[in-house]
Nucleic acid binder design. Sequence first.
DNA 1: GTATTGATTGTTACG
DNA 2: CGTAACAATCAATAC
Length: 176
Amino acid sequence: MVVSKMKTAKGKDKAKTTKEALKPVDDRKVGKRKAPAEKGETRKEKKAKKDPNKPKRAPSAFFVFLEDFRTTFKKDNPNVKAVSAVGKAAGQKWKSMSQDEKAPYEEKAAKRKAEYEKLMDAYNKNLEEGSDESEKSRSEVNDEDEASEEEAQLEKGKAGDDDDADDDADDDEEED
DNA sequence: GTATTGATTGTTACG
DNA sequence: CGTAACAATCAATAC
């Protein structure tokens, strides 16, 4: 319901504008950017991460959907053992889904993003501190930086009252 | 035996 | 403004 809601309110125009133009490169094939395993120069370099706790990029709506899709896909195709198969299928279905269906995923992704920003904040802070600690200073108060991180904050669920659940999911966004 | 690639799209951050 | 690179996954392959 609710048609009065304007899309602008959501701020979608932020990245929409020219989606097509947004992706200039048609071949965003990952393989291309991946170095040929020549020496340990792979971009990923999981073990080479110099940053102590670098927040991993928040999974996009697609990835969120993938998590769910992977399970379903595997369920239907237990024989499939290639990750690429799921990726392709997921991608195809993903494009097939209407924005409304992707909406819930986007919402989740948005949440993930918020967390990512938060982690980034801590990460930035850490870097700042790191630099500062060139000599001393570190010590003193913060013995453990990451440890605390207030693990407790998560109770967000509570409060139910406010919850943003209502969100705007209603806006019928009619997909194209 | 360990590390890496493969494939999908999105999102983010840098030049 | 554009692009590069990375986010999960899991098995197979490469060295």
